[in-house]
């Protein structure tokens, strides 16, 4: 399951666009575009979603100083039906496109595919990432946005954000992709769509465990292991699983979660942030920049995804989850 990249493709640039609520995020200073209108002044949420994807891609492209036509592949996805926002953004960007869906784990699964394309030499530049828009996703998975249902403490808030990264041949001054793990789909019988952290934690645990074993590493070999959107409770559960496995608590401070930290300790967001855009936004802004500065030299990014649909949980199915990981290093 572990893929090793001998040529070490690099993450050359990242671009993140986010909505108005995300100004309250502790990572907001790292984001490239922050918009005051969650619809990006479009008519519908879905159009705003598309616009956000475009803005994120464009800002990554601009940072590297290349043209749209120089990008060989565009890989990404979102959580809306048939992924129309990303598909439509691909129409505007006019790049060869493959839509990917691993729910919120798309941010890493797209990077894995892009790295493979770069390793193969098929792509000089590939755009990879994911996005989510709160209103568009909530209506997809839960109730209408304005419906006054009480969310439990375990619920998470879908972020409005898009994060895309440009991946290309190895460059010394950029974080390099050493290895990646494609996760299995794990189901521990959790069936509460308002408690996704609990459903996703086992998937994250298995993927991290598998990656460490096959790479013959320990947690302390890393400066940071960052999961995507487990939320505060999900992170607690993940740590709990590692503790049961004999890892001591001090080592576990390396383990962090983007969703749990995204909105700080704001109780209005319950257990934290979620959504494909959550992991993508943090990975492709905060993490990349911290690696370039040299704060972190060895990082494992683990994006988790809950593979449910409203149909599946209404039919009483449990929530299968997956997690994908990429290992980044910086010289």
């Amino acid at each position: 399951m572990v893929i090793i990249f001998p040529s070490k493709p690099s993450v050359l640039a990242g671009g993140v666009a986010a909505g108005p609520l995300e100004k309250r995020s502790i990572f907001s200073s790292y984001f490239d575009v922050l918009y005051d209108d969650e619809r990006w002044q479009m008519k519908t949420n879905e159009q705003g979603h598309r616009q956000m994807v475009q803005e994120a891609c464009q800002s990554a492209i601009k940072k590297l100083g290349v043209q749209n036509a120089e990008v060989d592949y565009f890989l990404g996805g979102d959580l809306v039906n048939q992924m129309t926002p990303t598909n439509f953004a691909a129409r505007e960007l006019a790049m060869p496109f493959i839509g990917l869906f691993s729910a919120c784990a798309t941010s890493v699964s797209s990077v894995i595919v892009a790295s493979l394309l770069a390793e193969l030499g098929a792509a000089k530049l590939a755009l990879a990432g994911a996005s989510s828009q709160h209103n568009a996703v909530e209506r997809q998975f839960r109730y209408p946005v304005d419906y006054g249902a009480q969310k439990p403490q375990t619920a998470q808030w879908t972020v409005t954000a898009a994060g895309y990264a440009l991946i290309g041949q190895h460059r010394e001054d950029c974080p390099a992709i050493e290895a990646a793990t494609v996760g299995k789909v794990v189901d521990y019988g959790m069936d509460d769509p308002f408690h996704m952290g609990a459903a996703m934690a086992p998937a994250a645990f298995q993927t991290i465990q598998c990656h460490l074993e096959q790479r013959e590493q320990k947690i302390y070999h890393y400066d940071l292991i960052l999961t995507g959107d487990l939320g505060q409770l999900g992170l607690k559960l993940l740590k709990g699983m590692f503790v049961e496995n004999g890892v001591d608590n001090e080592e576990l401070t390396i383990l962090r979660d983007a969703g749990a930290e995204f909105y700080g300790q704001d109780e209005a967001f319950q257990s934290g942030a979620s959504g494909a855009g959550c992991s993508a936004a943090v990975f492709f802004s905060y993490v990349l920049q911290q690696m370039r500065v040299g704060t972190y030299k060895h990082v494992l990014l683990v994006a988790t995804g809950a593979l449910l649909s409203p149909l599946s949980f209404q039919q009483g199915e449990t929530i299968p989850c997956t997690a994908h990981a990429v290992e980044l290093t910086m010289k």
Binding site: T154, M190, H195, P202, L233, G240, E244
Partner: peptide
Amino acid sequence: MEKEQYQKLEQYVTPKPP
């Protein structure tokens, strides 16, 4: 970790609704 074991851990960590 087994399913039952995990469900126990989950119940332990998840706060009870007030």
